Amino acid sequence: NQTRQDYPTDLCIQHLFEAQVRTQPDAIAVASKGQRLSYDELNRQANRLAHHLIGLGIGPDDRVAICVERGVEMMVGLLGVLKAGAAYVPLDPAYPAERLAYMIEDSTPSALLTQRHLQEYLPTLTLPLVLLDDDQRKTFTERDDNPVVEALGVRNLAYVIYTSGSTGNPKGVMIEHRGLVNYSVDAARLFALSPTDTVLQQNTLNFDLSVEEIFPALLAG
């Protein structure tokens, strides 16, 4: 039962994604509803969002809630949060309003990423609201270099995901970068993913299987 495998123990998940950007910048990283972004384009858009979030004072172990529908904006949002050094907190827009309100109150995010048409489903908030619609992303800073967050390490949070709450209130489970990197690298190996493969993203971000669908694919090119 020897299952030991080497994996990068000093890198966060976004650093492994950036390595793929350098390797094959023109390859398609994400496709949705006719939109196609290359690794380089996705990286630059995520970087602009990350610099915008850093400008809001967001950094390691801060939580940033993300309530978006599946698509290009979702991918830009996830990577932008991680590149800012923060942890993402997924909020499924299909959830009841009271559940969304509870998760926001409990996770105390420093900002919330969403889309214009989803604002009506969210509670009234005092924290910064960042819209990820196409026209809004163009208003972010023009800086599109990879952010360097000095205090960020593998023991910092990557995301906080909430349980189903079947035995009471949902509980936020905190996942560090080291666990996400370990799992993503191993999943890519076990599934034998290569740059010629396409992986379908079908689960809500509030289900851990979404992690298995997203990050191994990005790390494998």
Rank of each mutant, 00 (worst) to 15 (best):
G59Q: 08
P123N: 10
R143V: 13
M103H: 02
K138L: 13
L100G: 05
R143Y: 02
P147R: 00
E142D: 15
P128A: 10
L78T: 02
V68G: 02
L125M: 12
V130Y: 00
T124C: 09
Q119T: 14
V149C: 14
A151R: 14
P93E: 09
G153A: 10
P128R: 02
L125H: 05
V81R: 01
T139P: 00
L113N: 05
E150D: 13
R63Y: 12
L82V: 07
T126P: 03
G77N: 11
V89Y: 03
A111D: 04
D61I: 08
Q119V: 12
E73V: 05
H117K: 13
R99F: 10
P93C: 06
G153R: 10
D145A: 05
V76R: 00
E73T: 05
Q119K: 14
T141Q: 08
T124A: 13
E150C: 05
G57V: 08
Q136T: 07
Y102M: 01
P93F: 07
P147Q: 04
T139Q: 09
A87H: 03
L131R: 03
P147F: 02
M103K: 08
G71I: 02
R155A: 10
A151N: 13
G85Q: 12
L78I: 15
I66G: 01
A111R: 02
L82P: 00
Q115A: 12
D133I: 03
V64C: 06
E105L: 08
M103A: 06
D134Y: 10
C67P: 04
Y88H: 05
D61W: 06
Q115E: 12
P147L: 11
Y88D: 06
H117Q: 15
D133M: 11
D134R: 10
P93Q: 06
P60V: 11
G59I: 09
S107E: 06
D135F: 03
D135A: 14
N146P: 12
L122I: 09
F140A: 02
G77R: 02
A87N: 04
S110A: 15
I58G: 00
R155K: 15
P60T: 12
G85E: 04
L132V: 13
E105R: 15
E69S: 04
A87L: 06
I104N: 01
Q119N: 08
T114Y: 04
G80M: 09
L113H: 01
D134W: 06
L125V: 06
V72N: 02
M75H: 07
V72T: 14
L132N: 01
D144Y: 08
A94T: 13
E150Q: 10
L118H: 09
G153H: 13
T108C: 11
P96S: 08
P96V: 09
S110R: 15
A86I: 04
R137D: 01
A84C: 07
P60Y: 05
L112G: 03
